[in-house]
C-alpha cells in the first residue's frame, strides 16, 4: 500500500545531490510529491514528499547508502499526502534591515498575533560580512486589513523596513 513520507536531507552543497537521491528513489519505485530544495549558506537542503509502497525502514534502506556517499544527514517521517490542497496567498510581506538576533521571531510573532498564516517564508543574509543585512520574503493568508497589520508591525518592530502588499490572483 502506498504510504507518503517527508524526507529531509542536508549536507555540504555539491553538484549531483538531487540527481543521485531522486534516481535512487525512482529505482525503488518511489514517486515524488511536492518538494523544496535549496542552498542555504554553503549547505544544500531538501524537503520532499515521497510516495512508496512499503514501510519507513524500506525507504530508509533506499536513501541511506546515497546519503552516506554524499555525506548528507537525513530524516524520514510518515505524513498525510495532502496533495491538491493548495492555498493561494493573499499577502506578500517583505522585511529587511541590519542583521541582528530576533528579526524573524519579532516579525512572525506580530504576524501570528494578527492571525496572519504564513504559507511561504524565505530569508537570506546579504550585505558584506562587516555589515550584514537580513531579508525576509513572506507570503501569507489573512483576513485582516493591510493597515492593521502594518500598525502592529510598526508598534512592535524596530530597525527593520517592511512593506506589505496584497496579492490578487487572476484566474483566466
Amino acid at each position: 500500500m502506498r504510504q507518503w513520507y517527508m524526507i529531509a536531507l542536508v549536507g555540504k552543497d555539491r553538484a549531483g545531490i538531487v540527481a543521485q537521491i531522486t534516481e535512487a528513489l525512482l529505482g525503488a519505485g518511489a514517486t515524488l510529491g511536492e518538494t523544496s530544495m535549496m542552498r542555504l549558506g554553503c549547505n544544500f537542503t531538501i524537503m520532499m514528499m515521497v510516495g512508496m509502497d512499503g514501510d519507513e525502514s524500506k525507504l530508509c534502506r533506499v536513501v541511506e547508502p546515497v546519503a552516506k556517499q554524499l555525506d548528507l544527514h537525513f530524516h524520514v517521517d510518515e505524513i498525510e499526502p495532502g496533495l491538491h490542497q493548495h492555498q493561494t496567498p493573499d499577502l506578500r510581506i517583505t522585511v529587511y534591515g541590519a542583521d541582528r538576533p530576533g528579526i524573524v521571531a519579532q516579525v512572525t510573532s506580530v504576524l501570528a498575533e494578527s492571525e496572519v498564516n504564513i504559507t511561504d517564508l524565505d530569508s537570506q543574509v546579504g550585505g558584506d560580512q562587516e555589515k550584514p543585512i537580513y531579508i525576509l520574503m513572506i507570503e501569507a493568508l489573512s483576513d485582516r486589513d493591510v493597515e492593521e497589520i502594518e500598525d502592529a508591525l510598526n508598534r512592535s518592530t524596530d530597525g527593520v523596513n517592511f512593506r506589505i502588499e496584497e496579492i490578487d490572483t487572476l484566474i483566466g
Binding site: 490542497q85 493548495h86 493561494t88 490578487d168 490572483t169 483566466g172
Partner: peptide, 13 residues
C-alpha cells in the same frame, strides 16, 4: 509581476 491561475490548470497559481 502578478499572480495568475487558470481554469485549465486547476490547483496551481
Amino acid at each position: 509581476l502578478g499572480r495568475e491561475g487558470c481554469m485549465s490548470v486547476p490547483d496551481y497559481t
